[in-house]
Write a protein that binds this DNA or RNA. Sequence first.
DNA 1: ATCATTTCTTATCCTAGGTTAACGAACTTT
DNA 2: AAAGTTCGTTAACCTAGGATAAGAAATGAT
Lengths: 198, 198
Amino acid sequence: MMDDPFQALRKMFERYAPIPDAEWELFRPALRPEKIEKGKVWIEIGQDGDAIAFLLKGLMRNYYVMADGNEYTRAFRAAGQFVASYSSALSGEVSQCAVEAVEDCEVLTFSYREFKRGFARHACWERIARVIGEEMYIEYQKREYELLCMDALTRYEAFQSRYSSLHDRLSQSLIASYLGITPVSLSRLRGKRARKDF
Amino acid sequence: MMDDPFQALRKMFERYAPIPDAEWELFRPALRPEKIEKGKVWIEIGQDGDAIAFLLKGLMRNYYVMADGNEYTRAFRAAGQFVASYSSALSGEVSQCAVEAVEDCEVLTFSYREFKRGFARHACWERIARVIGEEMYIEYQKREYELLCMDALTRYEAFQSRYSSLHDRLSQSLIASYLGITPVSLSRLRGKRARKDF
DNA sequence: ATCATTTCTTATCCTAGGTTAACGAACTTT
DNA sequence: AAAGTTCGTTAACCTAGGATAAGAAATGAT
């Protein structure tokens, strides 16, 4: 039962506040298990971004697509984390960023509109939403710091420590798109550092 | 009474959830009016960042200081907004960023630790904290987008539309520190654009 | 008004990173 | 095994923006 996906999500939520069984039973039907295959764009730019996914397996990313086709990755998400166009879910506006599966994924999805209904019923839901929001804020503030204050090489090193377990699951062009540089440039950085290291 | 500072703050909070009078009376003693003079560092790097200020008058900024003395501004805040080292207040860790007064300021300060006590008493407080957190998240996500995807000139234009009213109250080196470039470089951008606009 | 201080501009030179292209290594597909 | 793919590397060249320094403009102090 430890690997019942519904239980995994409940456990995740309950890191922030206990959920009474009655409340859980009310929320549970809102959950939909889904498989998302590698390469599939789960949330498209300009579409509704109300859906939130809890990742059970696989790897996903949030990214922007520029007019010239260039992509910039906001974040990677692995099993045990939430995936969403969070700003879009919060604001109700269409999504500015896309979300796609980097590997074959299994997720549990639900609607944030649906989730918010709980706020009026029981305090646990608002508590959970608040703390998750705060954690996301802290995460993106670190990211903002990196982008504002660090050069590409330092950002790469920060990436390696933050996402150390993901490093080998990602292609260099994906890593480059996260760092805000080109794959060519990342390759150069790697070469430069390898030469320095000995 | 419209310009009673306490009322101004209450009104601000009540944009998110109504606060019963009894709750307000419990919270009010936590508020401390303060004057912060221009140039004064209100929150220092490495110090406790639990304090939150509601700006009644003046202008403040959040910023990072690099080892070489270089500064990068995260955000500017004007009257009617909250000022804090928000991540630090949320996490309880010491502040990574400094906060200073860009102009002479009048504020109403309170402790986030104190504020959080309300969560256990009445749902309005958690609602307020959640929505303010969400708004901050959305703001910083826009900022992250700008830093990740835009070049300096485009960021400058974005700055001008976002902070149009503040543009003339800020020195160029402060604006440059917000854009993540040097004052010299900003001057060059301005010159270049002026020549284009003729 | 004068001198001093800070702030902005402009010029020169330099470095990080973008662009393009050519090449090699590791896969698929047949 | 051969011929495409896709990816990472390397090199040549280019551009945005950093560093430094020297003027010009604005602001303040006496």
